[in-house]
Design a protein around this nucleic acid. Structure first.
Length: 420
RNA sequence: GUGGCCGUAGAUCAGCUGGUAGAUCAUCGGAUUGUGGCUCCGAGUGUCGUGGGUUCGAAUCCCAUCGGUCACCCCA
């Protein structure tokens, strides 16, 4: 539909009819991660642009072309494209490292990236994520992945696929990068245009290319796992051992890389298949970013790991039901006197904690009862002149097709009993 | 950002090789002036995504544009 005013491309309204599933998801997510000791942290949606340039990294697509950046009173600002950078900034700024040995936080909220929208990919999209600071793993790594797999399964998402890899720490990451470039350079003529450009800017990303021209080159590329040092290797092997012990399904994918620079060591991604999920089937991505706290000015040596999951994608991939918001009681008044009384009745019921909808528009009784059914009410209260004169209300059990007059005084109790 | 496909009532769609619109569901009303979910009857709504062009005449052809979607890309 074309209107004079419409939402900005790639940004969507979440309407009342859909919000139930969002609430359901949010509730389940909070419950699931709080069980593991995570506490919510809320950080601003706008941060200084250099924060993202330094953490996500120059040469990444996010920083190079997808950020909503602007200058406000001479200050370069960016609407957050991801959640980790802001959380790390807050962790460093408030010196949480000095207050507790490890910190576990989670967040929930909108992120913004100027990509071309498609199913499961929007310019304003919602992520939920967790971060753990101060634990070098690999126990947390395994616990975190297992937590996610179980959480997704509880949401009845099928076809889950867990991919894990290790990029190695700072030193080995750089060494591998050189080795990869040395391998690819001789065959650069055969590579796709994008990959040729990335050879200079971000060679690791070439491994992730689905371009047909790149497949042969990628297949023969040296594996990161052959380049990582002994420490990294021990960490990774222990992670796999723990996941096996937990029974968490996984697949080692040596070509798994991410589009953000801060990752090091453990890297994982969880994909889904079912539901209405389209081509954008990565439900969750995460990994270690051991050097980031120091990079952003925090205490050196504080390790960290985290993940972010895409809420829209989870909603597309799953079938769990919405939180119900329908009214329990529908009040149908006939006439003006009853209309006034209906408001009073409604107030009494709500004060007793009963979800009540008063038909303030009036109309024929037939129409009102139809509406009572349509909104999913369990009980209807019919009030007309006859009832008012007798000091009663007609209490109707919609499912049972039964009705009885109830005195005004005993109404709340009678309704309670019916709903119990 | 590049390329393909699509865009008709609130929703899903029909409308052949051009003669200015229909179905189903939903909505609302009615079927003894106060009793519902089924049934029956009735009603309404559309600048046929938008703008321009071809034509006596376009939802139907052409161009552009916007939006959606798929692939690339990217990633959640």
């Amino acid at each position: 539909m074309s209107r004079a005013l419409s939402a900005v491309k790639g940004m969507n309204d979440i309407l009342p009819e859909e919000i139930g599933r969002w609430h359901a998801f949010e509730g389940r997510f909070r419950a699931a991660v709080e069980l593991f000791g995570y506490s919510e942290i809320r950080v601003p949606i706008i941060e200084a642009t250099p924060l993202y340039v330094r953490s996500v990294g120059e040469g990444t697509d996010i920083v190079d072309k997808e950020m909503y950046s602007f200058v406000f009173h001479d200050e370069p600002l960016t609407v957050r494209p991801e959640g980790t950078a802001g959380v790390v900034r807050a962790y460093v700024e408030h010196q949480l490292a000095a207050k507790e040995p490890t910190s576990r936080v989670y967040y929930l909220g909108p992120m913004f990236r100027g990509e071309r929208p498609a199913r499961g990919r929007y310019r304003q999209f919602y992520q939920a994520g967790c971060e753990v600071f101060g634990d070098a793993g690999p126990g947390v790594d395994a616990e975190m992945i297992d937590m996610l797999v179980r959480f997704f399964a509880s949401l009845s998402i099928d076809g889950l696929e867990v991919l894990v890899n290790s990029l190695g720490g700072k030193g080995t990451k750089a060494a591998y990068r050189e080795r990869l470039v040395a391998y690819l350079r001789p065959m650069q003529a055969e590579l796709s245009e994008d990959s040729r450009r990335r050879l200079e800017t971000n060679p690791l990303r070439i491994l992730d290319s689905k371009h047909e021209r790149d497949q042969a080159a990628i297949a023969g590329a040296p594996s990161v796992l052959d380049c990582i040092d002994d420490d990294d290797k021990r960490h990774f092997d222990r992670l796999l051992e723990l996941m096996t012990k937990l029974g968490t399904p996984f697949r080692v994918e040596p070509r798994l890389v991410r589009g953000l620079d801060y990752y090091a060591r453990t890297l994982f991604e969880i994909k889904g298949r079912g539901g209405d999920l389209g081509a954008q089937n990565t439900l969750c991505g995460g990994g270690r970013y051991d050097g980031l706290v120091e990079e952003l000015g925090g205490t050196p040596g504080i390790p960290s790991i985290g993940f972010a999951l895409g809420i829209e994608r989870i909603l597309l991939a799953s079938t769990f039901g919405a939180d119900q918001a329908t009214a329990s009681v529908f009040v149908a008044p006939l006439g003006e006197r009853a209309g006034a009384e209906a408001l009073v009745l409604g107030r009494e019921l709500r004060e007793a904690g009963i979800k009540t909808l008063v038909e303030t528009r009036g109309g024929s009784l037939k129409a009102m009862l139809r509406r009572a059914n349509a909104v999913g009410a369990r009980l209807a209260l019919v009030v007309g002149d006859g009832e008012l004169d007798r000091g009663v209300v007609q209490l109707k059990d919609l499912a049972a097709h039964a009705q009885a007059d109830v005195t005004r005084d005993s109404l709340v109790a009678a309704v309670r009993e019916k709903l119990a």
